[in-house]
Amino acid sequence: MVIQNGKTDIKIKAESKNLNFYYGTHHALKDINLKIIDKSVTALIGPSGCGKTTFLRCFNRMHDLYVGNKYDGSLLLYPENINIISSSIDPIEVRMRIGMVFQKPNPFPKSIFENVAYGLRVRGVNRRSQLEDKVEESLRKAALWDEVKDRLHGLAFNLSGGQLQRLCIARALANDPEILLFDEPTSALDPIATAKVEELVTELKNTVTIIIVTHNMQQAGRVSDHTAFMYMGELIEFDRTEKIFTTPGKKLTEEYITGRFG
C-alpha cells in the first residue's frame, strides 16, 4: 500500500487496525493502530510489561503456540492485503515470510551450518550446493562469515553470545524474510557485540522491513527511522524517530524518554 506524504510516496508493509490481544482473560493489547513502513526500521519502546513483545509476536503468530491466546482486529500484510492474524491464514505461511530474532540467542544444538540451513530444510531444500550457497550468503549478510567459515560443521553453542545472536540473525535471513522482528536482540550482549548487531540492522533495512523492540533509548535513536511508544497495552504515540526524541507530541512520551518513569 502506498500513501502520500508531502512530496514523497511512502510504502506501507504492514498495518495493524484495532488490534487487540488477550492472554486468556488478560487484555494485553488494546486497539493498536500502527503502520509499518516498508524497508525501514520501526522501534517499539515503552516500560516493561507494556506489551511490546506481545505486539511483536503477533506478526509471526508465535502466540498460536500456546493455548488460551486470542487475537482480535486485523494485522494486514501488504501488498497482498492479507490479515496475518485471521484463522484462515496458515501461520506457517506467515512465518516463512516474517522472520524473528529472539531476546536470548536460541541456536539449535546442531552445527553452525545446520542452524542456518534449517529454514531451507524445512522448505524441502536438500541440495548440498544450494544449501551451501545460501548458508554462506546469510552468514555474510549477518557479518559472521569470516569468524565461522572454518568451523561451519562445529557445534553452534561453542560460539560467543554475540556470535550466537548473529547466527540467529543469519538463520532468519536464510529465508529471505520480508519483515524481520527483533525482540531486544542486544539485551544479553556486551557493547561491542551490540554495536555489531546495530550496524547489521542498519544495513539490513535496505532489503528488509525491520521491527525492533528495545529498552535502550540510544539504540532506538541510532537504528530506527520510526518509533512507536507503548504504555499499558496501548499505542501512545507513533512518529519519526527524531520527532519522538526531540519534540514528542504527548506528555507521557516525553516523560518516558527523558527517564522520568519506566
Binding site: 509471526n60 508465535m62 503456540l65 506457517i92 512465518r95 516463512m96 522472520g99 524473528m100 529472539f102 536470548k104 536460541n106 541456536p107 539449535f108 534449517y118 529454514g119 524445512v122 522448505r123 540467529c168 538463520r171 532468519a172 536464510a174 529465508n175
Partner: peptide
C-alpha cells in the same frame, strides 16, 4: 520452549 519457538519461527510444522 525457546528451541520449539526457534524452529516454528522459521516455518517448521
Amino acid at each position: 520452549s525457546a528451541i520449539r519457538e526457534a524452529a516454528m519461527a522459521v516455518g517448521a510444522t
